[in-house]
Write a protein that binds this DNA or RNA. Structure first.
Lengths: 371, 371
DNA sequence: GTGAAAGCGCTAACAC
DNA sequence: GTGTTAGCGCTTTCAC
């Protein structure tokens, strides 16, 4: 048995040793800073500014700025530069981002705003989107600001919270009929929409046509003739487009399509299932995996065997942990990539490039055990 | 069958109708803004400032500031106030956050930084932490900045990126032996650590003592005599503390404990399982659910039946979707609450209150089907 | 090569 | 009640 308890008992000691040994603490916790700790934030000067560095180095603050800015256009001799850098070190000077940003009109922060009422990060679909945003921001070296929803729903207030200089660009996730869209579209703030494409805002979304088509083809191939489509609780452009594509393809393939709405419970579906066998649907296409999972529960409750009696097809395919994932037949949507691509486009847009109004990412049919 | 296709075909039309009908577009997309769109950001003045509002209202910018600031200390007559508000409306003025923040020394943004190399949002554990941060920030009306990791690992650089005025407070998630800790502890930036407690930084974490104890008690109750503890890949204070608590309690209860490390594969465990029955362990306690899930896979591969031959206990209990979650016996950790509590404390700290150096949240034993 | 000065947009103390 | 002014910390143009 190994001595893990020993490791624990000295754990606090380790901190001091490693920290003091490894780095110049003066650089991290400088004189000015220590004073600041004592006084608290409100009583007087807390941070050391460029002017104090200048004084200590015997130059003016303009010169300090030139050295620190690193613009090769100004040639500052090594001696002065060295004096300034020493002063920076000794005083523990750190440039104030706010002042810098105000002057430069740039914050190096991208924002994300979701108007969705159903926004919950542990929802794997959302988590993947956030991960994509994070990855994208890391790539282009920006921090990511999650703009809070506490401001309510008044578009003017929300817009003001978004377009006030705090961020250099914005990724949004909202319905195209949100009043905010018009404002953002006309704003000078670079914006990219994800998931639900928004007209007049560059958007990154799934190839919903492909999604709808793949599902219809699969069902037809499997010999289904009558199927049910379970629609979204809200008229989201992306879901509608997939729905329409599905219907088009279903018609072409001779599939009869019944419908019921996700939010309305299973009464309608139950009614369909009570039809005589000749008229009874043999598959349900759900607008997303969660609806499909809930339906599977319902089938299990009613003793409907899946997929023999009823096939169930989802849409999303966001991997939970591989082991725990249900073997749902679904269409895998690259949410992570959607978000990351959005940030990449945003970055190009911010840099002044033109970007495509609409970017579609392919989806992939994934045959599971439910249909 | 319902006509969803109709809804789709007019979808784009809806935008205009709803947006124009519902709100004052001038407020959202004002004159100055429209011009800005044309010119782009770099060519000249983009935003309308308080001075332009002042000019239009026939007052000075100081007066405008007073009206907009809403400080009751200054009493501005209705007539002037009205003129100013109209000008604000007509010009589509929005206060510049950067300027405001620079002046006030406050950004209304809380930051989150994770030094962990394993930071991936789709990991349910992380997702729940982020959700807690989001909820907490929403409660105290702050935006949440995810500080990127692209700056590398040099503590000076990272520290500069954190303590530069960009945020009012910080929640961190890192090992206590990270060099950054010392810097943050001495910084004037209010900081709260989560998950792994950091000495000298107020921390919110789980009651690991309780976690370790609950597991040992459960195993003893179930009649186990020889168990294996699967340890973390890194010496995290929280995991070490739980481990130690488990060992203590196990000893008290007369449980023999073998060990193996998560990262080292299953060779050690296999060796234990090859022992004669009298010496063979009957349960494995994993330092977190992921390790447990992976172990379950291993057992399944080797034909070891769980929990008959070997009980498997996890730690985390973050719910994936309820339907898809494995029925793992585990200890449920309230990650969401840990993060939310951290933000609440941070908010109090920023307001000037004293906050406890250490906050522990209770965990809950959850009996599943694996032990 | 370095200094002086203007100004980013805002708030707040002080004067009238 | 309103105007004036200083200044938050920084960058950058223009003199010297």
């Amino acid at each position: 048995m190994r001595g893990a308890t020993t490791g624990l008992s000295v754990a606090h000691g380790i901190v001091g040793i490693i920290c003091n040994g490894g780095y110049n603490i003066n650089k991290l916790c400088a004189v000015g800073e220590a004073i600041a700790c004592d006084r608290g934030r409100r009583s007087g000067k807390v941070t050391v500014s460029i002017r104090e560095v200048a004084k200590r180095a015997g130059v003016t603050h303009g010169t300090v700025s030139k050295v620190l800015g690193g613009n090769p256009k100004y040639s500052i001799p090594q001696s002065t530069r060295q004096r300034i850098l020493s002063a920076v070190d000794e005083l523990g000077y750190r440039p104030n981002y706010l002042a810098q940003s105000l002057k430069l009109g740039r914050t190096d922060i991208y924002g994300f705003y979701s108007g969705s009422r159903h926004f919950e990060i542990p929802n794997a679909y959302i988590a993947n989107i956030l991960e994509g945003l994070r990855a994208g921001c890391n790539e282009c070296e920006k921090d990511l600001l999650l703009v809070g929803t506490f401001r309510g729903t008044d578009p003017v207030t929300v817009y003001n919270a978004l377009a006030n200089g705090k961020i250099d660009g914005l990724v949004v996730f909202m319905y195209e009929y949100d009043a905010l869209c018009a404002a953002l579209a006309n704003s000078s703030l670079p914006v990219v929409a994800i998931v639900d494409p928004v007209p007049s805002i560059p958007s990154v979304s799934l190839d919903e046509q492909m999604g709808g088509r793949l599902i219809a083809e699969h069902l037809a191939e499997r010999g289904h003739r009558r199927v049910v489509y379970c629609t979204a609780y809200a008229p989201m452009a992306s879901a509608l487009e997939r729905h329409a594509a599905f219907l088009r393809e279903a018609e072409r393939l001779g599939l009869a399509v019944l419908e019921f709405a996700d939010h309305a419970g299973f009464e309608e579906l139950d009614a369909y299932m009570a039809l005589p066998v000749s008229e009874r649907p043999t598959a349900v296409v759900c607008w997303h995996d969660r609806a499909a999972e809930s339906l599977l529960g319902h089938c299990s409750d009613l003793g409907i065997s899946v997929p023999t009696e009823l096939a169930v097809i989802g849409f999303d395919g966001v991997p939970f942990s591989p082991e725990s994932q249900m073997r749902l037949t679904t269409v895998v949507a690259p949410w992570r990539d959607v978000a990351r691509e959005a940030v990449r486009l945003l970055d190009r847009r911010v840099a002044g490039d033109a970007i495509p109004p609409l970017t579609h990412l392919s989806v992939e049919f994934k045959e599971g055990a439910t249909g």
